[in-house]
């Protein structure tokens, strides 16, 4: 188990050096006029290469919104978003689609798998979307097998999602998110549908996979028991990123 680093304060100013994710003064407003909701307000966040950040906050605090902006699913109302050196702030919808396919990995809260594809095919779909043909396709197949083996799913490769348990499904989703070799993987409450024990196993797996690939991750959670798998925890309340350290981190001091 990894001990969180000493510095647990969310840096409000981007530091120097390579960064997997840089959010600068990002603001997201839903609706307009009377019904206007500020979901994320002046958020500035830097996630270094290979760094695992837990984003902790109560329900409705803007976690998913922030994650979606970081992953190019949603455009910010204001502010700058740079992922793996690519500034996606002004990207068109089509550019964002390309970006999501090649630069980031997602694990969503609910639907993560295509029901009519097997576990292996759910990974391969990523390379198919990038138009893999011939040799590339063969390579992708080998990679999918390897990755599923790593995730302990070798024997489940040919099963449809409906035939998998919740934990297995989440592991397939992790494999899918890693398949395009992204610099950043975004997890939205990856364990919320799992019981504690399975949830912890999944978190361990995430941590190990990120470390071994030196891949950065943002893991959204509202469960403080999960934050110790991260290098650093960032709090969010009412759309505002907070600097106060969480209990677990204080204890580590």
């Amino acid at each position: 188990m990894t001990t969180p680093p000493a510095d647990t304060v969310a840096d409000t100013a981007p530091a120097a050096g390579p960064a997997a994710l840089e959010l600068a003064d990002v603001r997201k407003v839903y609706g307009a006029g009377d019904t206007e909701i500020v979901a994320v307000d002046h958020a500035t966040l830097r996630v270094g290469d290979g760094e695992i950040v837990a984003l902790l906050g109560p329900s409705g605090s803007g976690k998913t919104t922030l994650l979606s902006i970081a992953g190019g699913l949603l455009s910010a109302t204001q502010g700058r978003v740079v992922v793996g050196g690519e500034d996606i702030t002004g990207h068109s919808a089509a550019e964002l689609t390309d970006f999501r396919r090649s630069k980031v990995g997602f694990v969503f809260q609910s639907v993560n798998l295509v029901p009519f594809l097997t576990a292996e095919e759910n990974l391969l779909v990523v390379s198919e979307l990038s138009g893999a043909r011939g040799g590339a396709r063969k390579q992708a197949k080998a990679r999918a097998k390897e990755l599923l083996g790593e995730l302990g799913l070798a024997h489940r490769a040919g099963n449809l999602p409906a035939q998998l348990s919740g934990g297995e499904r989440q592991r397939v989703a992790i494999g899918r998110a890693l398949f395009n070799g992204p610099a950043l993987v975004l997890f939205d409450e990856p364990t919320s549908a799992l019981d504690t024990k399975i949830g912890e196993q999944v978190m361990e797996l995430i941590q190990a996979e990120m470390r071994s690939r030196h891949t950065a991750a943002v893991i959204v959670t509202h469960d403080t028991r999960m934050t110790h798998y991260a290098d650093r925890t960032v709090r969010i309340v009412d759309g505002v990123l907070g600097a106060e350290p969480v209990e677990g981190d204080l204890a580590a001091h």
Partner: peptide
């Protein structure tokens, strides 16, 4: 049995 433990 599929009713149990299949939140997704």
């Amino acid at each position: 049995a599929s009713a149990i433990g299949s939140a997704a």
